[in-house]
Computed example of a mutant assay.
Amino acid sequence: MIQIYHNPRCSKSRQGLQILEALNLDFEVVKYLDAPPTEKELAHIIKLLKITPMQLVRKGETLWKENYKGKDLSDKELIKALSEHPKLIERPIVIANGKAVIGRPPAQIKELF
């Protein structure tokens, strides 16, 4: 099953959704702000993305700057912060066929198919 971790208020996320629709694929929309991924789910997504937890962080968010920036956080602590504050997760994330990609730019989503 193809999944897109989607924030309807984000233009890049909306563009990612449009790409999947244009490819005429069956997919599940995960509104991760409404139902945040668990730490275990995030660890799995990070593994599929082949990145570090820090690479999944939206460092421009005020929440990040005020609460986490400049702190020496372990990967486990970063994953916990992302789970507790899903607004900090880069988006959109598309998962398909045991692989994942962050849709920034959204055209990267096509690389999965």
Rank of each mutant, 00 (worst) to 15 (best):
R58S: 10
I51N: 09
I19Q: 05
L112R: 05
K50Y: 11
K76G: 07
L82E: 09
L23F: 07
Y32E: 03
I89Y: 04
Y68S: 05
H44D: 11
L88Y: 10
R91G: 00
P86Q: 11
K12F: 07
K80A: 13
P37H: 13
Y32K: 03
L20D: 05
R91I: 01
I19G: 04
L17H: 10
G98M: 05
E21G: 05
K87W: 09
K87C: 03
E28M: 08
Q55N: 12
G103Y: 14
T38C: 07
R91M: 01
E28H: 08
R91C: 04
I79G: 03
E111P: 01
L33C: 06
P8G: 01
E90N: 06
A81Y: 03
N67M: 10
V57A: 07
S13G: 12
E28R: 10
K65A: 10
H85G: 01
E66L: 03
L56M: 07
T52M: 08
K31Y: 14
K80W: 12
Y68C: 02
Q55P: 09
E66M: 04
S74T: 15
L17T: 03
E39K: 10
T38D: 12
R58P: 02
K31Q: 09
E61V: 13
L56A: 01
E61S: 12
A96C: 11
P92E: 08
I79T: 02
F113I: 00
D34H: 07
E28W: 09
L88F: 12
E111W: 02
S13M: 06
V30I: 05
E41M: 06
V94R: 07
I109G: 03
D75I: 00
H44I: 09
L48K: 00
I45Y: 04
K80M: 14
Q108H: 15
L82H: 06
L33M: 13
K47D: 11
A81N: 05
P37A: 15
P105M: 14
I51H: 06
V101F: 08
G60H: 02
L20F: 03
Q55V: 07
P8D: 13
I45S: 02
I109F: 05
P37D: 14
C10A: 06
R91P: 00
L49D: 01
